[in-house]
Nucleic acid binder design. Structure first.
Length: 805
DNA sequence: ATAGGGTTAG
């Protein structure tokens, strides 16, 4: 497309056209002044229409020959959506109209015009011309169907497909990919299968464009077996075919298969594209495949693939999902074409690593580079507030949402409800919920989950019935939350009842139902029942995924059940779940805390890229078993690897000192934590120190720590110092500490016993009696509370509209 | 005689 050919045009109106117009710098500017694309279309349409009228009134006497010359010129540039080509086309159109006669009724020219306007994405003009056509043909139909697909009118595209077929125009291999794309966006597998049948009948399945689209269609509709079958039968696969197969697996959570297909593709020497690497990396990220993902990144570099916003985003997504935030940062800084998505991924990477300050800094930077927050950014910040239990941040974000009209966005509103529900008050969550106009299923579920997670099972159940009264039928998620609520409140029988009730209602329990039931039973101390449910779930054909395996392992830790842990480990080995770092970490954690340090060490040694959690698991394991030396050895090792310790690390180290009576070392670690690592010790850390010092008889120092603590001492801490008081007959100190004791719940009656023993040893019987009474009163209150809760949930049971009467 | 197509991150 040389400049000379365009300057020879007789009707050349814009002589200064510069083809370098699409250079990188302008492209970046275009992206930075981001506008939604559909608005651009509208704008263009209005402009071209007025231009169109101007030209048709200007060109009064035109000549056919010129029109044809221009037509050829237009052909030359077809596929071009630049403004200039559009106006050229419009000029030709105007001339044809003015001339009338043969050319305005020529099937070829008319079809060509439809194709031209369709290419320029002018839906209305193209449609008008198309409907006025005397003779439609495969080409004009194809143009219109393609246009409908591009503009997102998928129903229209499929209706067009049917109509053209009914009118005797046989859709060809150019129409089929668009029709299939419309099927997959609309999730109409039935239609898609029909198209597949038609393609087979007509022999279009040998066209790689059609067969690749079939793979994509089956993949997007979740029929992976069909996708794979079509894929296997394709002889001359191209990159797009491979990409479609890889992405199909990846988007259906069959990530291992996606990785395998990628390796097969490498074996047959097909050059990967950006799409290939992006899909591969999303699969690698999902299964924590660290080495594989790094290879993917390397392949992208070696193949010289351009780091555009999509490929870059997928690399950032990979690194931040596996927790390599520094690598994500590096890729981010090397990217020229950043968009909102890129920023969002970096921000959510920081949030996942708990680096809230970095996340907020990025938000500010993002704004200063003229990117506005979108609903994903806001949802991420809201989830960060939820995760960190930072209501202030959450409120600020809520304010921003209101000011910028994001509070009506369904996803954002949901995160707001979730934030209030989990961090502050369920009441506030409820108020936001009441204000939402359309209370759809998700909103109800969010609110129910908020109550359920706080163990307010009665409230959760009430909402569960209320939603049904308001005509919103609950789904699995709602049922799951009700079950979780009961389990959190130690109402195991109620949870199991709901579990069977949901099956009576023909709601199939899913992975989450089973997992929360299993871990809830484990946490409530029902020894072998969790394993029973674990087996039952597999009999019903449900395979646990990474998340549920991890949650099962942490359930073992909660009950220190080595037996249950071993059962799950056996399962992991049989299913070869080993590739995942997070599962290995959980295994190490389980063995370390359930008492098999040998196995914990073995798996710890197996991990190449060790991260903080796995070190922490070993340290706390050693500490639990009184092996302080080994705990410190692991700590030294992680310092050598430049891994920053966190609160949990220090909890492990300090309790190791506590368990082995290392006073000097404990004091040193505690001081290092404050001065060298600039950390604020938590309740737990003070607790270790108080316990360590009391046990070693240094009660003055222990008291100093109690007074320094940010919060009032809890039952455990009081217990350790009170029993030391008893040993040493320090009645005054015991008496002094009783002020804290009275504020506590009576769960740890041991403390009361310790204190009353202290009094008893001093012969202060009146005090002993007083303590007994306080204890009894508190216990009675607690029992009443529990009975009321029980009553509430029973009362709620009566108005049920869903159970069989 | 003649025209045109599929896959991509949260």
């Amino acid at each position: 497309m040389s400049a000379s050919s365009s300057s020879s045009l007789p009707l050349h109106t814009t002589p200064n056209f510069n083809p370098s117009h699409s250079s990188k710098s302008t492209k970046i500017k275009q992206i930075q002044s981001f506008k939604p694309t559909h608005k651009l279309h509208e704008q263009k349409q209005v402009e071209s229409k007025s231009y169109f009228h101007q030209i048709s009134s200007l060109c009064k006497q035109s000549q056919i020959k010129e029109a044809i010359t221009l037509l050829t010129e237009m052909d030359f540039k077809n596929g071009c959506v630049y403004e200039r080509a559009l106006s050229t086309g419009q000029q030709i159109h105007a001339r044809i109209l003015k001339t009338g006669g043969f050319y305005s009724k020529n099937e070829y020219i008319e079809t060509k015009l439809v194709i031209f306007y369709a290419k320029c994405d002018l839906l209305n003009v193209a449609n008008q011309l198309f409907h006025k056509l005397e003779k439609k043909n495969v080409f004009s139909w194809a143009a219109i169907i393609g246009l409908c697909c591009r503009m997102g009118s998928n129903e229209k595209a499929l209706m067009g497909f049917n109509e053209m077929h009914e009118n005797g125009f046989l859709p060809d291999n150019f129409v089929l990919p668009n029709a299939l794309k419309a099927c997959s966006t609309l999730q109409m597998v039935g239609f898609g299968k029909g198209v597949h049948g038609y393609a087979l009948k007509m022999g279009y399945n040998s066209c790689v464009f059609v067969s690749s689209s079939l793979v994509d269609m089956y993949g997007k509709c979740g029929l992976l077996d069909d996708a794979n079958k079509v894929f296997d039968e394709i002889v001359d696969r191209n990159v797009v075919t491979w990409n479609s197969m890889i992405f199909s697996y990846a988007q259906n959570g069959m990530d291992e298969e996606a990785l395998k297909v990628f390796y097969c593709m490498r074996m047959v020497d097909v050059e990967p594209t950006r799409v290939t690497v992006a899909s591969f990396l999303s699969a690698a990220a999902n299964v924590d495949a660290v080495d594989e993902g790094r290879q993917g990144h390397a392949i992208a570099i070696l193949s010289g693939l351009e780091l555009d916003s999509i490929l870059g985003s997928s690399i950032i997504n990979f690194y931040s999902k596996i927790g390599f935030i520094e690598d994500a940062e590096l890729v981010f800084s090397n990217m020229v074409e950043k968009d909102v998505v890129t920023w969002n991924l970096l921000i959510s990477g920081y949030v996942q690593q708990g680096k809230i300050e970095d996340a907020l800094d990025s938000c500010r930077l993002m704004r200063s580079e003229n990117f506005g927050f979108d609903s994903v950014t806001l949802t991420t910040i809201l989830s960060a507030s939820t995760k960190m239990r930072n209501v202030e941040l959450g409120k600020e974000c809520h304010g921003y949402c209101i000011r910028n009209n994001f509070d009506s966005d369904v996803v954002v509103a949901n995160s707001i409800i979730e934030m209030y529900g989990k961090c502050e008050s369920t009441g506030k969550a409820r108020r936001v919920f009441e204000k939402t106009v359309q209370k759809d299923l998700t909103f109800w579920n969010t609110l129910i989950a908020a109550y359920a997670e706080s163990g307010l099972s009665g409230e959760a159940l009430k909402l569960f019935y209320q939603m049904q009264l308001e005509g919103v039928p609950p789904n699995v998620v709602s049922w799951n939350s009700v079950i979780l609520g009961f389990l959190r409140n130690a109402q195991v029988t109620e949870a199991e009842n709901i579990f069977s009730e949901m099956q009576c209602m023909e709601i199939q329990p899913n992975l989450i139902t089973w997992t929360s039931l299993i871990s809830g039973l484990a946490q409530n101390g029902h020894g072998d029942r969790p394993i029973h449910y674990f087996k039952e779930m597999q009999i019903r054909g449900l395979q646990p995924n990474t998340v549920s395996i991890i949650s099962l392992l942490s359930a073992c830790i909660n009950v220190s059940s080595l037996e249950f842990g071993k059962a799950i480990h056996g399962y992991i080995i049989r299913r070869q779940f080993f590739s995942s770092l997070s599962i290995l970490t959980s295994l190490v954690d389980m063995y370390a805390k359930c008492g098999n340090l040998y196995l914990a060490r073995k798996f710890y040694n197996m991990v190449n890229y060790k991260e903080l959690p796995i070190y922490n698991a070993m340290i706390s394991g050693y500490s639990l078993h009184g092996q302080a030396g080994e705990a410190f050895e692991v700590f030294n090792r992680m310092q050598k690897e430049n891994i920053e310790p966190d609160e949990i690390t220090f909890t492990g180290l300090l309790s190791a000192c506590d368990h082995t009576g290392l006073v000097e070392k404990g004091l040193k670690v505690f001081n290092d934590m404050i001065s060298e690592y600039r950390m604020k010790p938590s309740m737990h850390h003070y607790g270790c120190m108080v316990s360590l010092l009391s046990r070693c008889g240094n009660l003055e120092e222990a008291l100093r720590f109690v007074l320094e603590m940010p919060l009032e001492p809890d039952a455990q801490i009081l217990g350790s110092i009170l029993s030391a008081c008893k040993e040493q007959n320090k009645i005054e100190l015991g008496e002094y500490l009783s002020q804290y004791l009275f504020k506590l719940e009576p769960d740890n009656s041991g403390n009361y016993v310790a204190l009353s023993n202290t009094y008893a040893a001093a012969g202060r019987w009146d005090e002993v009696l007083k303590l007994r009474n306080i204890m009894r009163e508190k216990k009675r209150k607690k029992a009443k509370e529990k009975a009321r809760l029980q009553l509430d949930s029973n009362r709620n049971r009566t108005p049920c509209v869903c159970c069989r009467r």
